[in-house]
Design a protein around this nucleic acid. Structure first.
Lengths: 252, 252
DNA sequence: GCATGTTTTGCCTGTTCATGCAAGAAACAG
DNA sequence: CTGTTTCTTGCATGAACAGGCAAAACATGC
């Protein structure tokens, strides 16, 4: 039984069942569970599955990848950031909200009694807002990317181009004073740029681990940030840099 | 039974029924109620449901109150219809799927190992398909209507106009041989008409209570229906009428 | 053939995680 | 108000886990 052979069989079962159990695979392949765990670890590293306790599941289930995988990490922090971020909202405003777990937390934190117009390309944000009776929700369609949880592409850009918003809640992947706001994906960055262009101000809420990091694709310069929502424990020196670029700092 | 698996099943039942009971889940999963409560707590923390005494309810019912009321109605029937309807699918096909609880059930019933391209204006359908790795998902954006759970309007129509599909799964509000397929909402009907125009064939899955009823807005004539999926208990006379108009009948 | 280095695998060790149980708190019903 | 159900918290146990180590299988060079 070749290693590669096992990998293929694991992929097959994942495609069919959506999940695999480490112990079951071990007995089926006639190898130790350690070997199976190693296989799963490698496949997970290659992004072909998502490792869970006891086995693995198919990667990027919407609510699972966007919310469990990443958000298992710092749920409380993001919830706190979200609460502080919605404090910036004024009734009657129109917003762009793009993807990311922090933005989903913000969407959930939006109170039920505030009237808003929200345009989003994130299914997570959209679904969080479906039960807000006073929120007029505009879904920005396009090609859906499971890894991002958002729609991107020409259709999305065209939809954004027809809209304008007072604020843009930008889900940031990297945030650095010198390099500005950056994203990991080209198409994603494109949509963010379009939203930034058509909005009156950018709001970014980030956990500490995003501060002073950068991703390949540039979205906007640091001077474009109007409001920056950060944790109380964020390094003051970094914050001072952003402040000198015109950003208003808000602590969660 | 993986923890993640239970979470997924809970999410599924919430999407289908709008609520879950802790005790019922415990016996169904074969675990203690404490474990289920822990699951529910975690999912609630991630914003995927709202915890209530005795169980949990959907936090953001894609289908608002009106829709979730209906969805509790005939869950088993709709699941059976959905299973029969997905039997019509062929790998590589492209589909339009619009809104409605039956269509959401169909989306959930789509197997994980079939390659498809799906364009939908329903957030419920879209979110059901986000964890299908082989499904290329195109979200048709626009103004979101909570009562329908779908996007409608000029933006949606424009997006539909740029696409074509082999089949159109039409969520029907009324179905009558003389009046054809009808909808309750003008904007909704408009989108359905556009999808019908750009698709190679219409598939309709309906419970008995929709048969031989009509709503104000006309979507398509009875002769436009290629496949009609119905319950075994559907009145044969009505079915014969549709059959004479060229529809192929499939029993769930 | 022999020696050497690499890869794969299984086993061991300490650690982490999921689970069920028990006890007290809170919510509900009558 | 009282009893019951449900919930949270803490804790103990066993399963699953990562990392280190050594043996076996394999390839490579002399």
């Amino acid at each position: 039984m070749l290693t590669e052979e096992r990998h293929q069989l694991i992929r097959n079962q994942l495609a069919a069942d959506g999940k695999v159990l480490a112990g079951e695979l071990a007995s089926r392949f006639g190898v130790s569970e350690d070997t199976v765990r190693r296989d799963l670890r490698e496949l997970a590293k290659a992004g072909q599955l998502r490792r869970v306790y006891g086995g693995a599941v198919a990667s990027a289930p919407f609510a699972a990848a966007t919310l469990s995988q990443r958000s298992g990490h710092a749920v409380e922090e993001k919830t706190r950031l979200a609460k502080a971020a919605v404090g910036l909202l004024v009734a009657g405003q129109s917003l762009f909200i793009d993807g990311g777990t922090t933005n989903e937390a913000i969407a959930r934190a939006i109170p039920r009694d505030i009237e808003l117009t929200v345009a989003t390309n994130s299914l997570g944000v959209a679904s969080a807002l479906t039960d807000r009776p006073l929120v007029k929700l505009i879904v920005l369609g396009g090609r859906y990317v499971p890894d991002l949880g958002t729609c991107v592409g020409a259709d999305t850009l065209a939809a954004v181009a027809q809209l304008g918003a007072d604020l843009f809640f930008l889900g940031s992947c990297g945030l650095d004073v010198a390099r500005g706001v950056t994203a990991f994906d080209s198409a994603e960055a494109e949509v963010k740029r379009a939203m930034a262009k058509n909005s009156g101000g950018i709001v970014i809420a980030v956990t500490n681990d995003k501060l002073a990091t950068a991703a390949p694709y540039r979205v906007a310069g640091a001077e474009a940030i109007r409001h920056l929502v950060v944790e109380k424990t964020a390094p003051p020196a970094t914050l001072a840099d952003f402040q000198s670029q015109g950003a208003q700092i808000h602590f969660a």
